[in-house]
Design a binder for these strands. Sequence first.
DNA 1: CCGGTGGCGGCAATCGTTTGCCATCTTTTG
DNA 2: CAAAAGATGGCAAACGATTGCCGCCACCGG
Lengths: 343, 343
Amino acid sequence: MPALPLGADGKRPVTINDIAEATGVAASTVSRALNNPGRVNAATRERIEAAARELRYVPNSPARALSSGRTRAIAVLVSDVTNPFYYGVIRGTQQQLKAAGYAQLLIDTEDTGELEAEMLHKMRRSLDGAILAASRLPDKELARLAGDIPLVTINRNVRGVPSAIIDTPAGIGQAAEHLLSLGHRDIAYVSGPQRSWPNEARWNAMRAVAARHRLTFTRIGPFPSGRGSGPAAADALLNTGATACIVFNDLLAIGILQRLRERHVRVPEDISVVGCDDIFGADFCHPPLTTLTAPIEQAGRVAVSMLLSRLDRTAAPSPTTRQQVMLPVHLTVRGSTGPGPRR
Amino acid sequence: MPALPLGADGKRPVTINDIAEATGVAASTVSRALNNPGRVNAATRERIEAAARELRYVPNSPARALSSGRTRAIAVLVSDVTNPFYYGVIRGTQQQLKAAGYAQLLIDTEDTGELEAEMLHKMRRSLDGAILAASRLPDKELARLAGDIPLVTINRNVRGVPSAIIDTPAGIGQAAEHLLSLGHRDIAYVSGPQRSWPNEARWNAMRAVAARHRLTFTRIGPFPSGRGSGPAAADALLNTGATACIVFNDLLAIGILQRLRERHVRVPEDISVVGCDDIFGADFCHPPLTTLTAPIEQAGRVAVSMLLSRLDRTAAPSPTTRQQVMLPVHLTVRGSTGPGPRR
DNA sequence: CCGGTGGCGGCAATCGTTTGCCATCTTTTG
DNA sequence: CAAAAGATGGCAAACGATTGCCGCCACCGG
């Protein structure tokens, strides 16, 4: 028996049975009236709803989850709650989930695939689905888990797992062209975390641009994505002799900006810096960061929509649900990029 | 019956009964072996644990919640997921909750007391407790709800509701003295949201300082806390003729900094700005913001500890649990404050 | 040798809902 | 007008755990 069967006010919480009793119908009818309105007579439904309102009935979600198997809870897994990029995602998912009446469980995977898999496995029964904002899991593992529990990824492309993808690689093209048009020829890519899918995608996009222009871009890193990596990255960057760089993400880029400042390297006069994502702070750091503006929040919203539509379909894999949604980015030029040397 | 009694891999999820069967004991014994180790013989416990591991058993939390009344889930309510201040809180709660094996439900109350109360009431049965990071509820309502469900507040002082309080008001004293020592006499307080408890506390602290020095500080606002309020606040500020200001929080302060820049008002030469909280970005905005550094993350951690210790005590209101924890802040001087006029 | 005590394990009720199935009553249809 | 179909509501069995209570056994002390 529960340790506290009574509310602190001494009243037992109202159940479906209380409503049944109050209206003189069976509990099953109450349940149906509330969840499956078409299934009961309009008149009785009214009475039931009135009683429910009267008694301030609130359904007991664990009980509901137990018998129906649906929890109306979605987990959002991020690799690091500290990273502002995820704030955008969380904001988006939050909005959409709340609107749909789902609860949002926030989980920090601490950037390790193991913890990610473990959490997912453990919570599998108390979740209707999960959104992986930055999975560090191998493709195979991911596909396997997707069989266990409905999954949608963000910025991760695995066969069979629906995903919202921010098309930063396409933006990398724009960014590189922007730098080239400013006269830069030695451009470096500052790499993010090793097993990060978007990181590889971005670098590949840069290489493609380099190839088109018969140039070679250098790559430094990998660096953990965080401002803390700024000093190491900035120093390595200066070592390459590059006159411009594209950085894995804004957080790292801001860290680099700070370090360059310390070392009295002027931005953009001495070196140009481009970030990715356009996170909170990219517009007011010094100098304001030229970056690829990503619809982060929208990615969160889209991911939720994809997930929910997958949950709704009774069983028929409706072909209307797209398996992948690609979200466009655009280049936002601010103060951190300028003309290259001797143009 | 559940729509999907089987896992996608065709296997029914492992229950306590499967373990019972495998080891030849009763389900109740399995339950006890797993949750109440002292209650069963060491040898049988070993066998049960082995079987559980073997079968990769994962307890079904809704079922557990239903029968025990405890969900091992804690909600964290913030008034606006967009605000970086709460990121710190969330980070802190996240750490501590994960360590204790609790799930974190993130809820955005959209700055309205009604939504806050409604959510709390609705989820009351699926939660073990809640942390209110910025309650907009009247004291009375809050006290009432605290009877319904274990509550801990952050930065809110209500009798009977334990809370972690960041002692920004004390810091305000330091900040004001700092400005006074720089020669400022006309100091303004830029007010945050109206019903915000910390906002009033900060203003009161400023008034106290003013009184001590036989000065009068002006107050402008209220402004919603957000960078978006920056322009209005900055313009109002300039109108007062103050040579320095203390701003309700960093977010608003950064917004003000931007607007001042647009209007070619130099900081700190023409006007000094002090923020509160030291959020992400305060150190790299331009100029870097002088602010009251608050142990935000720690506040989250402390709040969780207080809540969990309240949940643990079987029923005895252990007097060891402090009802209020005050966290100290300190002034971090950066580039946004400087000497006042004609010193 | 016997009653008491404690360790250990099983039985069965319970938590609050959902839902398959059936019974009844009303309507429609041929 | 009879039979089929539909509407409506009740019964009772799940769902997967927790836990009060009881019984059995072994061991202890008197």
